[in-house]
Design a protein around this nucleic acid. Structure first.
Lengths: 110, 110
DNA sequence: TATAATTATCGTAATATTGCAATTAAACGA
DNA sequence: TCGTTTAATTGCAATATTACGATAATTATA
């Protein structure tokens, strides 16, 4: 049905999935990489840098902003985007918690 | 168009996104959590544990297997799934590389 | 061999995502 | 004020994802 049955999962599972999902597109990975490299930039720069149309970039920026990974400030006719450091740190610890599950005690079945 | 233009991105960006994407569904997060807890289990257990239909679980298992995060061994009429430790470690370092980009030198724009 | 148990696959329906052209909105500068 | 610049929004088309019923395939068991 294309609809995720989030009602049957825990909050943790849904939040973890939502975070992973927003990283699950190469354009958004590229945007975040560029913001780390450049510190801050405007939408138009990303259009040039990445090579997708302006509305497409704008849409990806919106998703990143909705999850809190970036923030934007209006600067005249432009909008300056940058990494939201506080939320990035929170995301990192959420991922760490998931990825660093105890692998040593895992027994492979085969 | 619903089709990701992976041609314009780097291999790194595409691989990073593919890994994140497979974690981007709560059912797959739940499956992985359960495998960590139980070490190994069969599809039917996951159907009971998670509460989605058997074909749906089977499909999610397939995606996890395609990315290499789990592996399955045929055991009679059942298939025993478990975490692929080697690939899990590889994924972890890929995520670390991305998530641990130098945050200290990032200047927020606003 | 026939039946049961288990998982994968197929087919399909519903929804989501991706991408862009066209347009709108907002703020600046001549 | 009027045009210019920049980004967001709208509307739409194409593709992808999610979910499940039905079925097939495989192996064990009676």
């Amino acid at each position: 049905m294309g609809i995720t049955r989030s009602d049957i999962f825990t909050d943790y599972q849904n939040e973890m999935a939502a975070l992973a999902k927003v990283l699950g597109h190469p354009a958004r990975v590229a945007i975040l990489q560029h913001l780390f490299k450049i510190n801050a930039c405007v939408c138009g720069d990303l259009v040039d840098e990445i090579g997708l149309a302006q509305p497409t970039i704008s849409q990806h920026l919106k998703e990143l902003k909705n999850l809190g990974l970036i923030k934007g400030t209006i600067d005249g006719t432009r909008v300056c985007y940058c990494i939201d450091k506080e939320n990035w740190t929170k995301m990192k610890s959420k991922f760490s918690q998931f990825l660093d599950q105890d692998l040593d005690s895992v027994k492979e079945c085969c």
